[in-house]
């Protein structure tokens, strides 16, 4: 599940959106994941930006196209246009700011309004390095995620903790759902862009059994 690959050599392209309040660290999660960079002074995102990274998931090459959106509510109408075609989402809050966690509900509603019902969503509590300022206990995040059937993880873009895992988990889930659906419904991978090979059924079935949070 690692490694940076040549851009155009992939089996699947998955679009994933990063959403959440301003200043929770969305852009840094993105740059940590796609460039292994972190910038304390990264500017506010105006509108939408995106970056890609290609990685291997269960023997397939997945190109993840990750869309980073502006957090301020003012920009929501315009950014919502970019939900189109998203098959995954990381809904980010800041573990040191309770309000950002309380807004998660609104973000989730917004997401559901604009995307396919089977979109894979992970709740991400970022800035876990700031333990002394913790305002949202891990348990709170976890129980909310359970209640809403979301994946959950706490991350630190600054320390590169769990960032890779969070994205990889989401992409894996997407892949499994997509390939399962493809098996059931022929070649129509809804929302994803399969390119090249067919899915190997046996791997996916066994994989689904091991599967964690997202599939309840």
């Amino acid at each position: 599940m690692a490694g940076y690959r040549v851009e155009d050599d992939y089996d699947y392209l998955f679009k994933v959106v990063l959403i959440g309040d301003s200043g929770v660290g969305k852009s840094n999660l993105l740059s940590r994941f796609t460039k292994n960079e972190f910038n304390l002074e990264s500017k506010s995102t105006i509108g939408v930006e995106f970056a890609t990274r290609t990685l291997a998931v269960e023997g397939k090459v997945i190109k993840a196209q990750i869309w980073d959106t502006a957090g301020q509510e003012r920009y929501r109408a315009i950014t919502s246009a970019y939900y189109r075609g998203a098959v995954g989402a990381l809904l980010v809050y800041d573990v040191t700011r309770r309000a950002t966690f309380e807004n998660v509900d609104r973000w989730l509603k917004e997401l559901k309004n604009h995307t396919e019902p089977n979109i894979v969503v992970m709740l991400v509590g970022n800035k876990s390095d700031l333990r002394h300022l913790l305002a949202v206990p891990t348990e709170d995040g976890k129980s909310y995620a359970e209640q809403e059937s979301l994946c959950f993880m706490e991350t630190s873009a600054l320390e590169a903790t769990n960032v890779e895992d969070a994205f990889a988990e989401v992409l894996t889930q997407i892949y499994r759902i997509t390939s399962k659906k493809q098996v059931e419904a022929g070649e129509d991978g809804n929302g994803s862009v399969p390119k090249g090979e067919k899915i190997e059924v046996k791997n996916d079935v066994s994989a689904l059994k091991k599967l964690g949070c997202c599939s309840n």
């Binding site: 200043g23 304390l40 002074e41 040191t96 700011r97 309770r98 309000a99 300022l133 305002a135």
Partner: peptide, 25 residues
């Protein structure tokens, strides 16, 4: 207390990330 923090004026964490010994906001 946690709620108040949210409504505080000053809570950019960028800085807090570096300055871990900071007093409470």
């Amino acid at each position: 207390s946690s709620n108040t923090e949210d409504s505080q004026v000053l809570d950019s964490h960028d800085n807090a990330e570096v300055n871990s010994s900071k007093k409470s906001i």
